[in-house]
Amino acid sequence: MTQTDHSGPLAAGTGAPGRAHITLRTLRTDRWWVQPAITAGVLFSFVIYATWRAFENAYYYATPYLSPFYSPCVAENCAPGSDDLGRLVGDWYPLSPALLILVFPLGFRMTCYYYRKAYYRSFWLSPPACAVAEPHRTYTGETRAPLILQNSHRWFFYAGLVFNVILTWDALLGFRNSDGDWGHMGLGTVVLLTNATLLWLYSLSCHSCRNTFGGRLKHFSKHPIRYRTWTFVSRLNTRHPLFAWLSLFGVALTDFYIRLLATGTISDPTFF
């Protein structure tokens, strides 16, 4: 049997000493670049839209609907009627209220296991696709700063649950009319409810949620309720990528709908 000598200096990549001498980066014949390209395009578009909307600091409240990019609105300069939790930040803060809170949902998605796969492949090309050589000379993964901070996903998961409660409350507030009377409903209410539902599905299907409810257990048989909960979350977890995309689109479309209302481009169809 041939023994490979590893005593010499090692080259990075599949060209390392002893491996089959193939100079091509990949021998894949399918269009492996399509998926990372689409992912990069969609995520980049969302980042551009979200950044623009966060800095726009206008058209985020159309009574009684509040954009999820600005909820909860806690700055002194919030639009009248949009500050249900109170103006917790003093008038020293001059910037957009969205900038105060977006770090939490942004952090939740940035550290999400699914999105990590998506942007490591599509933006960082590490790797761009399976069995396609990455362009980096060295790789340390998530073993050191800054990527070791991906372990903070649990923190953002907890914060995300708080935001889900707030956004659900915002959706319930949508059952008022523009005069603040309860018992009314418009298309905006449906939009906000759908957005909140998708965010709950995304959060509850999260890998951290799965671990929290039962994944960390060794003895499922000793914790039957947690086992059942874990089983339910595991079923949701298989669709986590789907919920990740749907909730991302949901947030953007909800904000866009409210912007259209706030600018007067369209009016909200009222059901009752």
């Binding site: 990590r116 490591y120 340390t140």
Partner: peptide, 14 residues
């Protein structure tokens, strides 16, 4: 080296 894994799921795919 668990931290080296950046969960790009190629192992699952193959």
């Amino acid at each position: 080296g668990l931290g080296y894994c950046n969960i790009t799921k190629c192992c699952t795919e193959v």
